[in-house]
């Protein structure tokens, strides 16, 4: 089953990393990229390409991750899309806030690329066996 991911991250290399994991593992999934929350909301406004899962960075200019998450969760047509946080912070406060707003998962980005690959693979495999609500 092919899934559509919305990856929201301002860092180009982070976006490259994610794409490379999909590419190297021959996953059939599709990625839509957004550089920040605003851009992501624009993407979501186009009803023809709704993502199945959103991967969200927290530290971003303009609209940061948590602000975007709040917007999303207040939109009845979008609130059931699972959002996985990709963060550099394992700060308890950040974690708590993310889950409170309604994050479906929280990944701390590791330094080592191999570890990153491993985590993303696990994530994708987990979510590809889940039943998801189609918008």
């Amino acid at each position: 089953m092919s899934l559509t991911f919305l990856l929201i991250d301002d860092d180009e290399i982070e976006r490259l990393k994610f794409a490379r994991v999909l590419d190297k593992n021959d996953y059939p999934h599709k990625i839509i990229e957004a550089k920040n929350g605003e851009e992501a909301l624009d993407v979501l406004a186009q009803k023809d390409q709704q993502p199945d899962i959103i991967f969200l960075d927290l530290n971003m200019p303009k609209m940061n991750g948590l602000e975007f998450l709040k917007e999303l969760k207040s939109d009845t047509s979008l609130q059931y899309i699972p959002v996985i946080i990709l963060s550099t912070s394992n700060n308890h406060q950040d974690l708590k806030e993310a889950y409170e707003i309604g994050a479906a998962g929280y990944i701390v980005k590791p330094l080592k690329y191999e570890e990153y690959t491993h985590k993303i693979k696990c994530l994708i495999e987990y979510w590809s066996v889940n039943e998801l609500l189609k918008a």
Binding site: D11, I13, K17, N59, T88, S89, L111, K112, Y113, Y116
Partner: peptide
Amino acid sequence: AHIVSHDLKSPLRSINALVNW
């Protein structure tokens, strides 16, 4: 301290990824 530390980590991750590639 919080922000700087995290912002400092991002390039490290990127360098690590690039070296790996």
